[in-house]
Amino acid sequence: MNHISQTKYSTIEQMTGQLLKGRAVQTKQVKTEKSFQSILESQYAKQDSVLKFSKHANERLQSRNIDLSEEQLEKLSTGTKKAQEKGISESLVMVDNIAFIVNVKNSTVITALDEGEDKIFTNIDGAVIM
């Protein structure tokens, strides 16, 4: 008996630990391996779903007493998506006589104007009328 304990044999516990450790590493690799395409699509989907308002746009909406309904927000979001599909980067999106300038790439509303103001738009490369 003494001869066996002096040799370099692994115990069952050591072998089990090594086996479980190997499976844990293998499982982690499987979970973290994603294709570039799936990562790109998930990031693209996140960008599409969220329309942000810049500080300037929020100030303009408030100072001009423009309250947007859920329907108008949906139209604005849809118009932004349509502009994105056409490759527009800075778009005028018209929703119910309210004009929005949208940075399409960042899905960010830059400013908003209503009927009572001059409507001169610069630095846009497309327009969507909803």
Rank of each mutant, 00 (worst) to 15 (best):
I110T: 08
Q62E: 14
Q72V: 09
E33K: 14
L40R: 14
D118R: 13
D118K: 13
L92W: 06
Q47P: 04
N58P: 02
E115T: 09
L113H: 06
I88C: 02
A99C: 00
Q47N: 15
V95P: 03
T78I: 07
N123P: 02
L92I: 15
L113V: 07
K119S: 05
N106D: 15
E74M: 07
L61T: 01
S35Y: 10
G116M: 04
D114V: 02
S54N: 06
Y44R: 10
I88T: 05
Q62T: 14
E33A: 13
T80K: 08
I101P: 01
T122D: 07
S89C: 03
K82G: 00
Q84E: 12
K55S: 11
I66P: 04
R64M: 01
S42W: 00
F36N: 12
E85Y: 03
S89R: 03
S38M: 11
Q84K: 15
K55W: 10
S49L: 10
L51W: 06
Q29P: 02
S38T: 14
L61R: 03
E85V: 00
K55G: 09
S91G: 10
E90I: 05
H56Y: 06
G79N: 02
K34G: 00
L76P: 07
T78M: 06
I110M: 10
L51M: 09
Q43W: 09
S89V: 05
V50I: 15
D96L: 06
E70A: 15
L92R: 08
S107H: 15
I39A: 08
A83D: 04
V93E: 00
F100T: 03
L92Q: 09
V95I: 07
F53A: 09
I110Y: 02
K46I: 11
V93L: 02
E74S: 11
I66N: 03
I39R: 11
S89A: 08
L40G: 07
L61D: 05
E85R: 04
A99S: 05
E59N: 15
D96E: 13
Q29Y: 11
Q72Y: 08
T122Y: 08
I124W: 04
E115L: 09
A99R: 01
N65E: 13
V102T: 03
L73H: 04
S77D: 05
D114K: 01
L76R: 11
N123E: 05
K31N: 14
S35R: 13
N65K: 14
Q29W: 11
S38E: 15
L61V: 06
H56A: 05
V109G: 04
